[in-house]
Amino acid sequence: MNHLPATPAVDTAPTRSREPLVFGGVPEAEGWALAPITPRDRVHFRTDHELPLEEFRRELPDGVTVSYDQGEGLYRVDGACGTASVVAEWVRAWCAGRGTATVGLRAETDVRRRAPRDLPPAFLDGLCRHYLPVSLKRLQRNSSTLRLHVPDPDDLTQQVSEWILKAVEQFDEGKGVPFGAFLATQLSKWVHDLGRNAHGRTAADTENRQQKAVAAFLAEHQRRPSEKELAAYMGQSVATLRRNSQTVATLNGLRNLQSLDGVGPDGTEIMLPDAHEAPDEIMGEAEQTLLSHALTAACAPDPDARPDQRAGQPNVLGWATWYLTTWGGRTKTQLSGDLGTSVRNMNVHADRVERALKVRLVELAD
């Protein structure tokens, strides 16, 4: 008698799935639908003086809104699709009428964003409370970079909270990617942007590529590469590698200049040689040291300015512009390419240095 093979047992128990997240009594998926992402035209710009924001808001054309990112010193003006060029001209004229110069003004069309304030307050509050500890844990792998740019734990919590709100603004629920996955991807990008914004995009990207190449060579050969080997490994000429290495060295030098945070210059005593005893070349080096000291002090934050104002932050770009064009043999056009910024923006920062440096040089002459 033939027997049919036994039918394998099938687990008919339902697969366990994660319960949907609920914030403020509203399921997450439903919450996004309450404030869908919408297209608009946007104008981005910075200024050489902080704008009176409430007055600016009152005088904006109907249907146009503005937000201000204090951390980046960046204004974002939003209008209806098709109005980017008109809004850009209006912003430029309004600022010029009040003696304020715009820096890096750029119009962008068809930007898809949502305003976090359009979400139910309880939903937004619950979402932020849930994703804050998740994000902080996710960012532990970037702790060394974060400590460099955001050393205070309270400031880090604030920065991550701002990033969560930024992700809420950009998240497009129609693309089928969960918000948590979108946020994790953006966090890695924004950590990298901290260095790019502080020290110039091209310089930070160059440093990142060189570090990765050195690490890969070390893993493969168990030793550091020579200059020629590293150039070949990166597919560059030795001349290009040397030029890029100078950019990286400048970047690291800027990071290590304690005096740019307002701590060093005025509290440090400089011992000068006796002009009658020291040879001319030593006195020449002493004068260069004094000039460098004065330049660095001129780039320190203004102690009378608020930390969120441009004058209350170290003028890194102004320092790089003055130092590298005076002693580094570089032109502003070359620096513009290396640092990923416009010559006009460099001039704005360099003018701030010049005003402060004139005072310092008078003190030195006395």
Rank of each mutant, 00 (worst) to 15 (best):
Q236L: 15
R255Q: 13
Q70F: 06
T7S: 01
P279V: 10
H3G: 00
V191P: 09
G174R: 15
R355P: 00
L230R: 07
S17T: 15
T289P: 01
A181E: 13
P20L: 05
T326E: 05
R42G: 00
T109G: 01
R209H: 14
L105Q: 12
D172V: 13
L295D: 03
S188T: 13
Y323Q: 04
L165I: 12
G195I: 04
A231D: 06
M346K: 02
V10A: 06
N244H: 15
R138D: 13
C95Q: 03
G264L: 14
R201I: 03
A101F: 03
S226V: 03
D304F: 01
C95D: 03
L254W: 02
R310D: 00
D172T: 14
L165C: 05
F217P: 01
A249W: 09
A216E: 15
H349F: 15
L105S: 01
Q159S: 02
D154N: 06
L127Q: 07
A80P: 15
L241R: 14
V348K: 02
P52L: 08
A84T: 02
M1V: 02
A239F: 01
L156F: 13
N197W: 06
S237Y: 07
R18D: 14
W319R: 08
Q159T: 11
A107W: 04
L218N: 06
R224F: 13
R98L: 05
P303Y: 07
R255E: 06
E19I: 10
A294R: 09
E229F: 05
E269Q: 13
V348L: 03
P121F: 07
L295Y: 04
L139V: 07
S259L: 08
L291M: 11
L230D: 07
L254V: 15
H221A: 13
G82C: 08
T185Y: 11
G24I: 09
V64F: 01
R310S: 00
L295A: 04
N208F: 11
P52I: 02
F23T: 07
T15D: 02
G82N: 08
R106A: 13
W90H: 05
R42C: 10
G24M: 10
C299M: 10
Y131E: 05
N197K: 13
T47Q: 02
F182A: 12
G71T: 01
F179L: 09
A80Y: 08
V86Q: 14
R310I: 02
M1C: 00
L53D: 01
R310Y: 03
R209W: 12
P151N: 03
D261C: 08
Q159H: 09
T157Y: 00
H149A: 11
A13W: 01
L165W: 09
H349R: 11
P120E: 13
R201H: 12
A93H: 10
L53Y: 08
F23C: 09
R129C: 02
N2D: 05
G99E: 04
V316R: 14
E108S: 12
T268M: 11
L290N: 02
L194A: 05
E59Q: 13
A365Q: 09
L34R: 15
W32M: 06
K358L: 11
A215C: 07
V353S: 03
R117G: 12
H293Y: 07
A275R: 14
T331Y: 07
D41Q: 09
N347H: 07
S144R: 14
T100C: 12
Q140H: 10
